[in-house]
Simulated assay, not measured.
Amino acid sequence: MFALVRRVDLADVVGAALVAKVSGAGARTIAEALGRPVETVRGWLRRFGRRAEHVRVYFTALLVEVGIDPVPPALAASSFAQAVSAMVGAWKSAVSRWPQIGEVSPWQAACAVSQGRLLSPSWP
């Protein structure tokens, strides 16, 4: 099981919310799609948004460090989107080196790498 610290929902649910936000959805739409309270989803998005630059830097460095032939993610429209892209890119880089990592989602991998503290103010 992959859950973030102080969160009831699994990393895959939070990850789906992050991807939906990058795709242009708002908190209400995301909450309805995931069957979660809008306040909960809004909290995830705000917390991640405040940490986005730190998350982007951390996962971009991880992507470069573990990848066999790493390709840093292209610039995105926002720091939020860049951070999500870096997380997925780091997962892809890890899968290129260790294919068995592909058995977990990018969000489960990010949860493991952050020791469940992806949305914590003190991480990374």
Rank of each mutant, 00 (worst) to 15 (best):
E32P: 00
G24S: 03
V55E: 04
A27T: 06
V57G: 07
R56Y: 10
A33V: 03
V5G: 04
I101V: 14
R97V: 06
L62Y: 10
L18P: 06
A16F: 01
T29H: 06
T29Y: 08
W91Y: 11
V57D: 10
Q108E: 11
L4F: 15
C111A: 15
V41C: 11
A52M: 02
D9E: 15
V113T: 01
G89W: 02
D9I: 01
P37S: 07
R46W: 12
R6H: 09
A61G: 08
R36P: 10
T60I: 09
S93Y: 05
E103R: 02
A11C: 06
P124H: 12
R36D: 06
V66R: 15
A86N: 03
D69R: 06
A25D: 14
A81L: 02
R51C: 10
G24E: 04
G67S: 07
R42D: 09
I30N: 00
V13I: 03
S96T: 11
V22A: 05
K21M: 07
T40Y: 08
R56D: 07
A74H: 09
R46H: 14
S114H: 04
G49W: 08
V57M: 07
A61E: 15
D69I: 02
V19N: 09
K21P: 02
W91R: 03
P99T: 04
R46E: 14
E32K: 00
A83E: 13
R7T: 03
